[in-house]
């Protein structure tokens, strides 16, 4: 049971980290458009298959 002394703070810190990350991402605008990114993700695969990245514009 003594291991809880280490595990408990670890779990709490982990939990807080994720909450913090979520808040940060929300303010970064990552969740503003919930529909298009899931498609954009698929498009990246196409680019890789083509071998070229010139269409990326960067």
């Amino acid at each position: 049971m003594e291991v809880i002394v280490i595990l408990l703070p670890l779990a709490v810190i982990l939990g807080l980290l994720f909450i913090g990350g979520f808040i940060w991402m929300t303010y970064q605008g990552q969740y503003d458009d919930l529909k298009s990114p899931k498609y954009k993700m698929l498009l990246d695969d196409y680019k890789k298959k083509d071998g070229g990245d010139e269409l990326n514009g960067h």
């Binding site: 979520f22 808040i23 929300t26 605008g29 969740y31």
Partner: peptide, 24 residues
């Protein structure tokens, strides 16, 4: 509108994280 939207998401996210931890 965007601010409100983000706040809604934050409320849900924090509720989810809180509920799961409390349940544990």
């Amino acid at each position: 509108k965007m601010k409100e939207e983000r706040q809604n998401l934050l409320r849900i996210g924090i509720a989810a994280a809180g509920a799961n931890n409390v349940m544990l």
